[in-house]
Structures are given as C-alpha cells and as structure tokens.
Write a protein that binds this DNA or RNA. Structure first.
Lengths: 193, 193
DNA sequence: GTCATTTCTTAACTTAAGTGAACGTATTTA
DNA sequence: TAAATACGTTCACTTAAGTTAAGAAATGAC
C-alpha cells in the first residue's frame, strides 16, 4: 500500500527514509466503502484527497438531479474548492468504489512543508502538472461533440466506462443518460454498417 | 507597472525589498502588440506567461479553423502544456490586445525558488487556487447549455464580451459563431417579449 | 479613399440533443 | 421472497445546434 505511494512520488522527487517515515507517521491513510460520502453540499471542510486505490467522484445536485462532473482514480489528487475559498461546498464528493485515500489538510501540509521543503516542491509540481492536463481536457471537451467526447473517453480512460454507472458518465460527458444510450446505439450501428 | 505585480503578490505573501529587487532585476517584463504570436503549434518552448496588462488567448487549428479555448487577462498565469510535458505544442498562443507579460522559464524559476523559497510557496498557492477555479469553470461548462454559458459569461467576465471578437467567444463557449449570433438574437427577443 | 478581407448576421435545412413516458431488468431492502 | 427502487434502453416529439450559403458591416492594407 505505502509502496504504491512511494513509487509514485519517486517519479518526481527522491525521498530519504526519514521523509518516508514522516509521511507514514502522519497516519493519513483511510479506507472507505463504496457509496461513502466524503463531502456534502453546504459543508465546510479542510480535507484534501489523494486516491491510492479506487475511485471517487464530485457531483452537484441541480434541479433535483445529480450532475457528476469529475472522477478521480489511482494517483489523482483533489483539493475541493471549499478548502481553497473557505466557503461551504457547492458540490458533493463520494466513493464510486471501495476506496483507499490519503486525507490531508492545510495545517498538516504547512507542517510538512516547513519540516521538509521538498514536499512543497512536490505539491507545486503536481499542481502545475495537473493544471496543464486539466486545461487540455477542458480544451478537448470544448472542441468536440458529445459523440467525439465519448469515443475519446473510450480511448483515454476505458476503465471508467467499466467502473462507473452510465448515468454518471452521461453528465460527465455533458449530456443526459438517454442521449448517451442513443449515442452508443448510433456508434454500434455505424460499426455494423 | 511593477506596482501592479507587487500589489497582487502582497495578497498571498509579503516580500522584502530584496526580494522585490530580485524580481525586477530578472528583467522579465515584455510588451507585445495586438496579434503577436507567442507560441505556435509544433513549437517547443519553455516560456510561462503572467498577464500584467492586456489579454492573450490559446487556440487550436482543427480542420482549418481556429478553436479558441481560453483567454488570460490581468493577473492570470499560463504555463503552456508543452512546457510541462516537454513536447511540441498542440496549440497556438497569441495576443488579443497590446499586452504586457512576465515571461518566465523553469530554469529561472528554479533559481528563484532556491534563492527565495517563498516564491515556490507563492507558485504552489497560485497553482492550487487556479486549479480549483478551473475545476469550477469546467463544472459549470458541463452542467449548462450554450445559452446558460453565454449568460454566465455575461455575469462573470463582461469585459471579455467587449474585448474579444464574437467568433473567438463562440468557440470559447463550445459552439459555432452562427449559433452564438442566433443565441444572442434569441435572448434579445426574450427580453423584449 | 478605395478595395479586399475579415467579421457578424440571417436564413433554410439537417442533425442531434433535450424531454417525458414507458418498459424490462437488475439491485436493495423490508 | 416480495415489493420497491434504481438503472438502462427505446420511442415520439420538441428544441436547439451544425451546416451551407449569402449578404451587410466593420476593419485593415495599399
């Protein structure tokens, strides 16, 4: 379990045994059951998440129905907006599967950063990297049709299509569940013809 | 000009005169004319940008036409994807108006970070903040119709609608210029009725 | 100032997504 | 186990975006 994390970190910076021990001793590894709620609309929280195993999603409830906007899987990090702007959360976060997370908070991070400045470098690099990736995702979303977005997802994150219910995928693709059904039927029809 | 920058930074961290001088002596302030190209598809570059005054945009050329995906205005930073992944750029960057930028690169940043670790904190905080903001933008985009997105933009960045040509706004909203024209006519019609 | 180009709008037609409803099939849970 | 709920698909209909084309208005170049 810890090795998963350290292998990942080693791609960016090298850690001494001291530093590894410091992380482990923070005791931040947490397990959650499928469906568990991590954050609800209106709540304030300081918790940031890093997915070691499993899958979590963010969703809004708009006009009574769920709009899933993001999925975070292995080695992806999420700092909810409410942690940054210190306001009640606009959205929900819950577990799509049984999930193991690192749960951190700003105080803990500040302490780690002052003890081991290297960690702040790591966080900066990860944030910049994820930001650039996120921008590309957004660009692709804007410049393609729902059908293209689905086909793109099929290429880039085929696991998601297996792991996640259709109606959650639909809003992730910016459409209604019925439209996703139809669109998939359309694609199958094309492949046949 | 420098005050613009220092006032902005002072919201996050406090700088000594030494540190301010270090920034100024880097000599990173650059002026560009409207329409100037900062980066082209296929080019490699290490330059990151911070907008002091003016407006720049990123765009792709897909099937022969421009797809504008982002605008950066005063006090917004852009580290192009090609700087992060060290590959040729997928997109273009150019100036929408006469613009004054800070142009930085990883070597320069590394030097500043080691001399003044505070700058790395600043960059981490800005990246995390921008990432959370970006996520909210993306969420809003996914969960709304083109018309809602236009109305939303009218609320949140009314300046853009003045500063930027319609056809660039259209792709920024994820639609064709004709659809934006029609959509605006539809809104005007509603307001009248 | 004139010409050429780009930008914006309008219109008619095509295509695909939204909507509301029905139905079969899991999955829960009492 | 039975009833209830949630999920995915299909259908008919509505609405809005894409496409193609044409023309008016603004901008830029010479």
């Amino acid at each position: 379990m810890h090795d998963l994390l350290f292998d990942f970190i080693s791609k960016y910076i090298s850690l001494t045994d001291d530093e590894k021990n410091a992380i482990v001793s923070l005791d931040v590894f947490r397990s959650f059951k499928k469906g568990a709620a991590l954050l609800k609309e209106g709540q304030k929280s300081n918790d940031g998440y890093f997915v070691l195993k499993g899958c979590i999603r963010t969703y809004y409830i708009i006009g009574g129905d769920e709009k899933t906007t993001a999925f975070y899987t292995e080695m992806e990090a999420l700092t909810p907006h409410c942690v940054i702007n210190k306001a009640p959360s606009e959205y929900y976060i819950s577990c799509v599967e049984d999930t193991i997370l690192i749960v951190s908070n700003p105080d803990m991070e500040a302490e780690m950063f002052s003890k081991f400045p290297k960690f702040e470098s790591l966080c900066r690099i990860l944030a910049e990297e994820f930001l650039a990736k996120q921008q590309i995702n957004f660009d692709e979303f804007k410049t393609s049709s729902p059908e293209q977005r689905y086909l793109n997802l099929l290429q880039k994150r085929p696991d998601l299509i297996q792991r996640v219910p259709q109606h959650q995928l639909a809003s992730y693709l910016g459409i209604k569940p019925q439209s996703l059904s139809r669109l998939r039927a359309r694609i199958l029809e094309k492949d046949k013809g």
